[in-house]
Amino acid sequence: MIEIHDLHKYFGSLHVLKGINLNVEKGEVLSVIGASGSGKSTLLYCINGLEPVQQGKVVVDGTDVHAKGTDINKLRQQLGMVFQQWNSFPHLTALENVALAPKIVKGKSKAEAREIAAQQLKHVGLGEKLDVYPSALSGGQQQRLAIARALAMEPEYMLFDEATSALDPELVGEVLETMRMLAEEGMTMICVTHEMGFARDVSDRVAFFHQGVMEEIGPPEQIFGTPQSEHTQKFLANVR
């Protein structure tokens, strides 16, 4: 379970997260929507400790992410992350991209790591591309590679930071399909997304962020059907 208590985050004098309180249960799929600059992505970075926080805390399975004694590298193994810019490692083949972290972070043997990698690549539909370098993959394939790379660490949670917004429109579908598949398999997911269709169909809950505040959270039918806050109504009217 991920518990976020009164989380505040500043970039210099810019107050980007203003007291977020949020719990995400095991097996839940939460979509986070909102305009650019509303703090959605920053929230993900705070959850896996890529950004320090100034007030409040994030607790993952009982471990305080930002506490001094926390082994953050160990904790991050529980939190797979997929970025907007897919960030495949260009100097490694697809298989090596996925096998590297299990080998050097988890200490798996080379053969074991490669087996896990091959399995995960097959899982996301890249079973034919094991020995291909990322430069020979499309954006959608590279994003699925990034998903496989995160899954190879056998995380408890997956954080998606606008996983489809840097993709050409015709490639968005294959990545959403992969995310849908993970949701059906019961993966706990927090998806920052601009894909309203995905948010509506796949999520258990949807959170709407506006200027660093979580204005509204609830089941998709409620957020998309009868949004309470004026900002949510405005935002949804604009994206439709």
Partner: peptide
Amino acid sequence: RASRSLGMT
């Protein structure tokens, strides 16, 4: 960032 998110030091 991507490397660190995988738990690398």
